[in-house]
């Protein structure tokens, strides 16, 4: 496996864990974002940490987005106190939003061998709507700027 393939595999495995912890039957783009914030890859972490987005920062931003979106229609996330359900024993499938993020990341290069870890982050940051853009906005992170910094890191990487 190429270093990129190894990174991608690690990110997807991590995203599976995040989805299971979340009780989600599918891996969504939010789980991918948590995964890239967790996997120790310097080229990705330098971009994320400059925006204050370590794993805890991403988790807090996503949780805030969930609560905020529920509050819009007068619902509280803490509205029930049932015991936490057991986790799925199987690996969650890749969901639509995660597939789209990966396709966008892969689409940023014309040759597969040019793919770098930061392309996964770039694909995630290409989301036009949904939980990730909203979570970033609520956390005060400029998504466009973050994507630009990711592209810059990729350019530097190629030199």
């Amino acid at each position: 496996m190429s270093p990129f393939d190894e990174y991608l595999h690690a990110v997807i495995m991590r995203a599976h864990l995040e989805a299971r912890d979340d009780g989600s039957p599918t891996v969504e783009v939010a789980h991918l974002l948590l995964a890239v914030a967790t996997e120790p890859e310097p080229s990705v972490h330098s971009v994320l940490s400059a925006a204050g987005l370590d794993r805890d920062g991403v988790r807090a931003a996503l949780e805030r987005e969930f609560e905020h979106s529920l509050n819009v229609v007068g619902v509280s996330a803490a509205g029930h106190d049932l015991p936490r359900p057991s986790r799925l024993p199987t690996k969650p499938a890749l969901g639509t939003s995660a597939k789209l993020a990966l396709e966008r990341g892969f689409g940023a290069v014309s040759r597969k061998k040019d793919l770098r870890p930061a392309h996964v982050l770039l694909g995630i940051l290409s989301a036009q709507a949904g939980t990730v853009p909203r979570a970033l906005a609520l956390a005060g992170v400029d998504q466009e700027d973050l994507a630009a910094r990711t592209r810059l890191a990729l350019t530097d990487d190629n030199d």
Binding site: S69, L70, V72, V73, G79, A129
Partner: peptide, 13 residues
């Protein structure tokens, strides 16, 4: 955008 996000969040909840 708020209304659509509320739908997604309610489904998740």
């Amino acid at each position: 955008a708020d209304a659509l996000a509320a739908v997604a969040a309610l489904r998740r909840l």
